[in-house]
């Protein structure tokens, strides 16, 4: 699915990622953990193709193709979905309008027919129900005035509508209480599939109790310093990042 080799990236000329290599197979869920400032969010932005992030060295291959040559929306239509840590508020654009525009833009890019209003509405209602997203929320402007939980549920709803091949969940647990976290995690787990891979980026082990990863990587100072199975997360919880980053340095 995804192969990252010796990836170096900078923001405004400051190097943040300093040689990351990572291979993600079909259907695998990888957790990337690390302290603040370790480069976790940079990695997700680089994968999504954000323009102020500059790749200075290394390669990203997605489904056998060079990902770095694709624009942001081409990556999206190719199946890369970024669940934002802080979903952007878009005043004036209702959630429903936005969902329809995004779904049809991707269908069009893939050469599929656009969904008509009736089919689309049916689909959204179905998915929204699963995620306990109120109908009223769909009529409100996207993410504007949403609570932390509503924002993350809206992100998960988008994911389930857009059916990505590779979902990158950036600090999905931030700002959620335990009940909200469970709803979101349930939604994510329902989307696990043999042809869908996920990267779960998180600071805390808590999320990984609900979304159980196949592999865990620890990111510090722009490098992956340890990789292991899901037990690594528990180990981190016990010892903290400090030990690990210091031993790495």
């Amino acid at each position: 699915m995804l192969e990252i080799k010796d990836l170096h990236a900078s923001v405004d000329g400051t190097p943040i990622l300093k040689g990351i290599s990572l291979t993600i197979g079909d259907g695998e869920v990888h957790a990337i953990m690390g302290p603040n400032g370790s480069g976790k969010s940079t990695l997700s932005n680089v994968l999504a193709g954000r323009e102020d992030y500059e790749i200075t060295k290394g390669s990203i291959t997605y489904k056998g193709k060079d990902l770095t040559e694709l624009s942001i929306e081409e990556r999206a239509s190719a199946g890369i979905f970024l669940a934002f840590q802080y979903p952007t508020e878009i005043p004036g654009v209702t959630t429903m309008t936005f969902l329809k525009t995004a779904v049809n833009a991707q269908r069009k890019a893939r050469g599929e027919d656009e969904l008509d209003a009736v089919k689309f509405l049916k689909l959204v209602r179905e998915k929204a129900k699963e995620l306990k997203v109120e109908e009223d929320m769909l009529k409100r402007p996207l993410n504007v005035g949403f609570s932390g939980g509503e924002k993350k549920r809206a992100e998960t709803l988008q994911m389930s509508l857009l059916q990505p091949s590779l979902a990158v969940l950036d600090e999905t647990d931030s700002g959620l209480d335990i009940d909200a976290l469970k709803i979101v995690a349930d939604g994510v787990n329902r989307l696990r599939a043999p042809d869908r891979s996920m990267i779960v980026i998180t600071h805390y082990q808590r999320l990984l109790d609900y979304i159980v990863p196949d592999h865990v990587h620890v990111l510090a100072k722009g490098k992956i310093i340890r990789s292991g199975g899901k037990e690594l997360a528990a180990e981190l919880e016990a010892s903290g990042y400090t030990d690990m980053t210091e031993s790495a340095a």
């Binding site: 929306e73 995004a102 857009l162």
Partner: peptide
């Protein structure tokens, strides 16, 4: 960026 990440062109 948000819109483009969801597949809308510029």
């Amino acid at each position: 960026f948000y819109c483009r990440q969801r597949g809308l062109d510029e």
